[in-house]
């Protein structure tokens, strides 16, 4: 009885906050028919925003993958001073508002910023350009890979690496053939979450973007502009692209979870 009630509450909650908005997005996107939807999605500015979003994610995710692996390796396998500080620092982007993160980059690289004038003198523009978008995205997505990997790697312990070493494997061989494959589901999970956030990020990116249409507008920013210009149908059409992306992420995530449980290997303690 209580169980059924709790399930009902959970389903009603999910329906109210997840399913109805999702349906609303799609309904709005198609309110003027499929032709109008396709036109909005194929519009050059929308395509430019889509391209920029993909480029940003394609740069930010690998950067954080490398950093995440290095950080997780250090935290999970070695004892050193300042380890707790490092773990706290990794979590910092979760604690800081994305808008503040964006502002930090403006302060650093903006025209009045600390490094801005020097960079400008050498022909680099960071703020209101693609490098700024990538930096801001890297900042907000920094914790994901490391966060997912650290517990998996810690649960693995160090014996498999020691065994590999005694069998004659060098450091890189051990990393690529033993450590990472052993933690691959954690790794994949981190990449999926990192990618979802990179493509969906609004706050930090909005601050450093400058909203130059066709140049520094990512998909979320483009949606906002369309919306503010009362182009509701177009706004929702473009938003539906992000929604599809979110759904793909969810499915990928479910697949990873299902596969990793199926195999009975990480994440989780050894049998």
């Amino acid at each position: 009885m209580l169980g059924a009630a709790l399930v009902a509450v959970a389903l009603a909650y999910l329906g109210l906050f997840l399913v109805i908005p999702l349906v609303a997005v799609l309904a709005q996107a198609f309110q003027n028919g499929v032709a109008a939807y396709l036109a909005a999605v194929r519009e050059p500015m929308a395509l430019a925003a889509l391209r920029l979003t993909l480029v940003t994610a394609a740069l930010a995710v690998p950067l954080n993958l490398v950093f995440g692996v290095a950080a997780a390796w250090a935290v999970a396998k070695f004892e050193f001073r300042g380890k707790t500080a490092l773990v706290t620092l990794i979590d910092l982007p979760f604690a800081v508002s994305p808008v503040i993160a964006g502002l930090v980059f403006i302060l650093l690289f903006g025209r009045q910023g600390t490094l801005g004038p020097w960079l400008a003198a050498h022909g680099f523009q960071v703020v209101f350009a693609v490098p700024g978008l990538v930096l801001a995205t890297v900042f907000v997505t920094l914790p994901f890979v490391a966060r997912e990997l650290i517990p998996v790697m810690q649960a693995m312990g160090t014996e498999e690496e020691e065994a590999a070493r005694l069998l004659g494997a060098g450091g890189w061989t051990t990393l690529f053939r033993v450590t990472l494959p052993g933690a691959k589901w954690g790794l994949l999970f981190g990449v999926i979450l990192s990618n979802a956030r990179a493509m969906g990020e609004f706050g930090a990116v909005s601050v450093v973007s400058g909203h130059i249409r066709g140049q520094t507008n990512t998909l979320p920013l483009h949606v906002e502009i369309l919306y503010n210009e009362y182009e509701f149908q177009s706004a929702f059409a473009v938003a539906s692209l992000l929604t599809v992306l979110a759904l793909v992420t969810l499915v990928a995530r479910a697949l990873v979870e299902w596969r990793s449980e199926e195999r009975g290997i990480a994440p989780g303690p050894r049998p």
Binding site: E159, E160, E162, A163, L166, I265, A266
Partner: peptide
């Protein structure tokens, strides 16, 4: 040196 660990330390993904 051949080493056998108490908890085997087999490579779980292989």
């Amino acid at each position: 040196v051949g080493f056998v660990f108490q908890h085997y330390a087999l490579f779980r993904h292989m």
